[in-house]
């Protein structure tokens, strides 16, 4: 398997070196991205035939993924990453809006080819799907500007109402904390989207919302949101890997995505995209599957 991995690397490298179809576009800043025929050919036949994959996302999580001013276009780091991956693979990687809580189930059911929605790679979820890791981050506590409820850490959430997006890693975190609260019971209100949870916080119906650190930072510093939100502390809880959830049935797709991500990392496009969205702190050195570098994944 290791040999195969090496072969793969060599093959892709050879292909890249000898590729006659490599075009450099002077008008594209990410011109290092080029179609890798070898990877393309390794894609599942169905994907190759239709020419695209559909990745489900909940576009309420700036700056990772959110709606542009037109209310229809999804923008953010993850749409950019998907596009770059698609370019390497020679297919279109479409972002499709869907509820986060059912996203994994939809992928397992085959509705979508994957979840690209800042999904934390947890052991529990690995039972359902494989994760192509592309980022790592911890969780921060977002409160109203001025922190009127005096939230300082996770324990201080006891006795408060905390809003969260349904089905997220943060929800499971809260459930764990909830159990330690004792008689100062914590009320967890879950909502279909992260935006809905933030509405609760903005309108004072919730004391806090747990967000991944980049999203929390964006809220606390963005021009439209910083007047209403801040982070309770700089602390990041439970730093974890995040990944594109892919059905266990589609190991070819999973490996191709990992290889394509590696290509982006080595070519610098990955860093470029992180820089554009101010997410360099979450960079990972190499693409992994389920937290393991290429060899174990390939094995």
């Amino acid at each position: 398997m290791a040999a195969a991995g090496v072969l793969l690397m060599l093959a892709t490298g050879a292909c890249s070196r000898g590729g006659s179809d490599e075009q450099s576009d002077p008008f594209d800043a990410t011109a290092g991205v080029a179609v890798d025929r070898e990877l393309h050919d390794r894609l599942p036949e169905s994907v190759r035939n239709k020419g695209f994959i559909r990745l489900v996302t909940d576009a309420s999580y700036a700056p990772m993924e959110y709606f542009a001013a037109d209310g229809r276009t999804i923008i953010g780091f993850e749409p950019d990453l998907a596009a770059a991956l698609g370019e390497v693979l020679g297919i279109r990687a479409e972002m499709v809006v869907g509820p986060f809580s059912t996203a994994l189930d939809d992928v397992v059911a085959g509705t979508y080819d994957g979840v690209l929605s800042m999904m934390t790679d947890t052991a529990e979820r690995r039972e359902q799907a494989d994760f192509v890791n592309y980022f790592h981050t911890g969780t921060s506590i977002v409160v109203q500007r001025g922190n009127p409820q005096g939230i300082s850490d996770l324990n201080s959430l006891c006795g408060k109402v905390v809003a969260t997006e349904k089905g997220t890693f943060q929800e499971t975190m809260l459930r764990r904390v909830q159990k330690t609260c004792g008689d100062r019971s914590m009320t967890i209100a879950d909502f279909p989207t992260n935006a809905d949870a933030l509405v609760q916080l903005r309108t004072g119906r919730a004391a806090a919302v747990l967000n991944d650190f980049p999203a929390a930072m964006y809220l606390a510093t963005g021009s439209r949101t910083s007047a209403f939100f801040e982070m309770a502390s700089d602390e990041q809880y439970e730093v974890s890997l995040l990944g594109i959830a892919v059905s266990k049935e589609s190991s070819e797709l999973r490996d191709c995505l990992r290889a394509a991500l590696d290509r982006l990392i080595t070519s610098g496009v990955y860093t470029e995209l992180l820089t554009r969205w101010g997410l360099n702190s979450g960079a990972i050195p190499t693409a992994m599957v389920n937290g393991q570098p290429a060899e174990p994944a390939a094995g």
Partner: peptide
């Protein structure tokens, strides 16, 4: 005008 019904700003 666009019909936006959710907090995420999605136009439907």
């Amino acid at each position: 005008q666009p019909l936006i019904t959710s907090a995420s700003g999605q136009s439907i």
